[in-house]
Amino acid sequence: MTALGTDGTRDAPPSMSGRRSLATALVPALTVAVSLLALCLLWNLAASVWPSRAFPGPAQVWQVLLREAANGDLFYHLGVTLGRVAAAYIVAMIIGSVIGVLLGSYRRVDRFFNPWVILFLNIPALVVIVLGYIWFGLNEAAAIGAVAVNKIPNVVVTMREGARTLDPSYAEMATVYRFGRLDRIRHILLPQLQPYLAAASRSGISLIWKIVLVVELLGRSNGVGFQIHLYFQLFDVAAILAYTLAFVAVMLFIELLLVQPVERHATRWRRRPA
């Protein structure tokens, strides 16, 4: 029935459909705003019912946020953490995709390496981080490498499934018409893997930023994780929440302004679902 409704707008006079499409664009945004506002109110209510230093209300958190933003600390630590997230994400996606596609394409290789994948999937993040710092020292490369190693097995598993769904007829067409290696990757392989890349990215970024915080807590002297550790020792819950929410907001903007537009562009050839 909804399908009929959206089709109907196409036949309506232009002014009508314009107004209606504006309304349909606004309704989801409004819903999100109202929903977040309700959560804040609930939080505020709870904080005033149980007043405690360990449970500050939204107003207090907001004030800490403004203070940290004013003295520049907030943006510095957000920036550092974001840089680590980006670096670990890129390393994990590239290495994980290459390994995943290889395992998905060659069954014998997959049979041999599958136990390794399962092993790495189940090594706790904390162990990888601690070993990384012990073996490679308390440095940036060890930190980013440890995060990437935590994420790579997930990417491998997703991309392996993707490689198994590759349609051989496109590869045969490319062979007959003598596509170059780069053209094959860009026009045959990546577009077919796009849904799997998107899935690995989506689950990847949120996992990575959580692990980056642990890495920062254990062995770095800046970043959101370091700040949270600092305020944990000071028992300053308002500051912990301020940093957490600020970074969540950053990730939300990345999702809205980067991930979704890229995905829309990559799937422009698909017919819009009715």
């Binding site: 007829s169 496109y170 045969e172 067409m173 007959v176 018409y177 003598r178 596509f179 053209d183 026009h187 045959i188 577009p191 796009q194 050839w269 698909r270």
Partner: peptide, 24 residues
Amino acid sequence: RIAAVFQEPTLLPWRTVEQNVRLA
């Protein structure tokens, strides 16, 4: 060069008609 017309059109769904032709 060789060229083939397969049983199925085997066009790349993510490229336009013209891009499909030029890529070959």
